[in-house]
């Protein structure tokens, strides 16, 4: 699956309306955004927008070109998934019915190096940071206990190595 996932690493103006323009372009061309994360970067008035898309290489190429056409988009790079280091953060609220389940869950958390950040009667909130695959794997394991709620940030990524 991952060979058809591309990561667009873009630098955009940090001002109102930019996300709208980007989202609008995707909608108009019928491309789908798998995940998106945005945050300011060190350079003046700019943000980094990391977008993952799923599709063939032609779609990726066309997406890059259409992104580059947007005046508020200063720079666009597209990476194959494997050429990047990715991190994502998830907050997962898991329910448990017994102390046994609680200790099993705590155990899984330590294997995955997750942090338990809240425990209430019958449920706990876990913070998971890592690659999207790691988060998926953790969700797989604990889903049997019952996931009550979950929030994922979407991928943020940088290209490997010294190329900039």
């Amino acid at each position: 699956m991952m060979e058809n996932t591309f990561i667009l690493s873009t630098v955009v103006e940090n001002k109102p309306g930019v996300l709208f323009r980007v989202a609008n372009m995707f909608r108009r061309r019928g491309f789908n955004i798998d995940s998106i994360s945005v945050g300011p970067i060190e350079e003046n008035g700019l943000s980094k927008m990391t977008i993952t898309i799923y599709g063939d290489r032609d779609v990726a190429e066309q997406t890059v070109k259409q992104m580059s056409k947007l005046i508020d988009v200063v720079k666009v790079q597209v990476f194959d998934y494997e050429d990047t280091v990715q991190r994502e953060l998830a907050l997962i609220k898991i329910q448990f019915s017994s102390n046994k389940s609680l200790s099993e869950l705590t155990n899984y958390c330590s294997i995955f190096r997750n942090r338990v950040i809240d425990v209430s009667p019958g449920s706990m909130i876990v913070e998971v940071t890592g690659t999207p695959e790691k988060i998926d794997a953790f969700i797989d394991i604990v889903s049997g206990y019952g996931i009550k709620e979950m929030a994922r940030t979407g991928i943020t990524a940088l290209q490997r190595g010294t190329k900039k």
Binding site: D58, E61, Q62, K65, Q66, S68, K69
Partner: peptide, 11 residues
Amino acid sequence: IDPAELGKNKK
């Protein structure tokens, strides 16, 4: 002049 037109409808 528009790079997005190259390869958009036809390779």
